[in-house]
């Protein structure tokens, strides 16, 4: 019986358990308008990648705990010391020093607003969000960059005040654990598994 591929790290090495790929036969491709002559073949393949978050791991771990982490350059020698980054950047793009991780949950709750947005009716394969997906780009006071995420309730508008919500139950440990709702949304209206 097959099981999903699972990975853990021990002694600095990946340890693998379960099935990481599934075999499916090749099927011929034939020309219906020319005597069903052979044109090619399908090459089915199902694989599981093993991906490290590296220095961004604290960000993705924190989402499931209801925290939004950003980073700040604290290098005294950097011309841009004090710059705050969300998305989380491991290194300062100017001095390449290691940034300090900061908890900016409170800043997000107080100052987040929609910079721009779009409503997505179609998606690529492997999308797991319900359509239409409401992409929003969020600006924060005192933060140099603008985060891309998605709005779970309401209709987006430029300048709209929003607050973060976190998938604290059954987190996926991906960026999808962070979403946003209009300011003033009651907790009872939040999507399943999400909380403030």
């Amino acid at each position: 019986m097959s099981m999903f591929g699972q990975v853990y790290v021990s002694n600095g090495k990946y340890r693998l358990k379960g099935d990481f790929h599934h075999m499916t036969p090749n099927i011929p491709i034939r020309n219906a308008e020319d005597g069903w002559k052979l044109m090619g073949v399908t090459n089915p393949r199902s694989m599981t990648y093993i991906h490290t978050y590296g220095g961004e791991a604290p960000f993705f771990e924190a989402l499931g705990k209801g925290k939004l982490l950003g980073t700040r350059c604290d290098n005294e020698g950097c011309e841009y010391k004090g710059s705050v980054y969300q998305p989380f950047r491991i290194h300062c793009p100017d001095c390449l020093g290691r940034n300090t991780i900061i908890d900016m949950t409170a800043t997000a709750k107080k100052t987040a607003k929609v910079h721009t947005f779009m409503v997505c009716e179609r998606s690529g394969a492997f999308n797991i969000l319900d359509k239409p997906i409401k992409f929003i780009n969020i600006e924060f006071e005192g933060v140099d960059t603008i985060l891309m995420s998605y709005l779970s309730l309401g209709d987006p508008e430029i300048g709209m005040k929003v607050v973060p919500i976190f998938r604290k139950q059954n987190p996926t440990y991906t960026i999808l654990d962070l979403s946003w709702v209009p300011e003033g949304t009651p907790e009872k209206d939040l999507p399943e598994n999400f909380g403030f």
Partner: peptide, 21 residues
Amino acid sequence: KDWESPLGHIYTGYYAVMAQR
């Protein structure tokens, strides 16, 4: 791949936010 692609897996979306703005 960690910050954008999971949001719908569709590139048009990244241009649509610029179009809106």
